[in-house]
Write a protein that binds this DNA or RNA. Structure first.
Lengths: 171, 171
DNA sequence: TATTGTTATACTCTATAACTATA
DNA sequence: TATAGTTATAGAGTATAACAATA
């Protein structure tokens, strides 16, 4: 599906093939979508900070992740992640366990309350997106979903510049 | 997984018309896009915090906004916004002026440095999006841009539930 | 008096550096 | 010694409440 018949040596990863006004339109539309996305989290009844919300998502998708792994996912240092876990454990959102294999490590899991919040967050995001999708014609909606799915897959590909694996803390 | 084919021409009006698996796919794809979007800001050479980045965007798009307006856009209270402006003014990113019409008000503008950062942020976001778009086939890309533009417009419409005008501070 | 913004205080979030425990 | 995590300290970000200036 990944249509890449360009010679590997060509410049800028092929971004030059996309006209400026197209990138600008995409930026504007994505900006509105990002706002919609973020509001779904802000409107949760529990009123978690963005970083606590992000932490819940990371642990939900990486059950049993250790503290260093969480810090890496947050793009933060272990000390910050540790303090964050202090507060989230005290708030009853996560649990810290000692890893059986290596007792230096800490295994992180969601508490029942944390899992409930994650489920609710996902539900609200889907609902917010669905409300907008419902305003579109079925044809537009179908084209958006299909194209967006491809776009999302490409965003997750590690070989896309600016995707992951960058140490932005040293910037 | 019942694929509901609705008769075309029927008025779209409720989120219930969008099947759950469609909303789920959209959530997943948008999540990846949101990550791409956020990384563009994190990788700026200046290393601003998300809230400072957001403040720069708000002032850039609302030149001369007053402090209360900024606070509302940030979904924060004036006191928090005032402290934020203290630091950003000290960092040379924004300037505070007294409003000529009403001397109680404070008019906020970007400094040259703040404007430069905003331009760079926008450039990097467009570049990140363009790099992914360049990986798509021209047809998919076209369909995505067209459908995404419509989606973006609908996200910005005030009558879409969960759009704006919500006082999430009281939640 | 009502509105706009700032200051006092306290808590969360984050990084640097020093530390403890385990390997 | 090297690794995983915590604690000490300090500064940024935020809210509540009290305050000052202007309308």
């Amino acid at each position: 599906m990944t249509h890449r018949d360009r010679p590997p040596g060509e410049r800028a990863g092929g971004a030059a093939e996309v006209p400026g006004h197209v990138a600008e339109a995409a930026e504007r539309a994505l900006g509105a979508a990002v706002s919609l996305w973020n509001r779904a989290g802000q409107q949760l009844p529990a009123s978690l900070s963005p970083i606590q919300l992000q932490t819940i998502e990371i642990i939900a998708r990486n059950d049993g992740i250790n503290l260093g792994g969480l810090a890496a996912e947050l793009d933060a240092i272990p000390s910050s992640a540790s303090r964050l876990c202090d507060r989230m454990e005290a708030a009853g959102l996560i649990v810290r366990e000692s890893a059986p294999a290596d007792r230096r490590e800490v295994v992180l899991r969601l508490s029942d309350e944390g899992l409930r919040l994650f489920t609710e967050l996902s539900r609200r995001r889907q609902e917010a997106v669905a409300r907008v999708l419902a305003e579109m014609t079925p044809g537009s909606r179908r084209r958006l979903i299909d194209a967006l799915a491809e776009f999302g897959r490409l965003c997750e590909e590690p070989d896309v510049p600016g995707s992951r694996s960058l140490d932005s803390r040293s910037a």
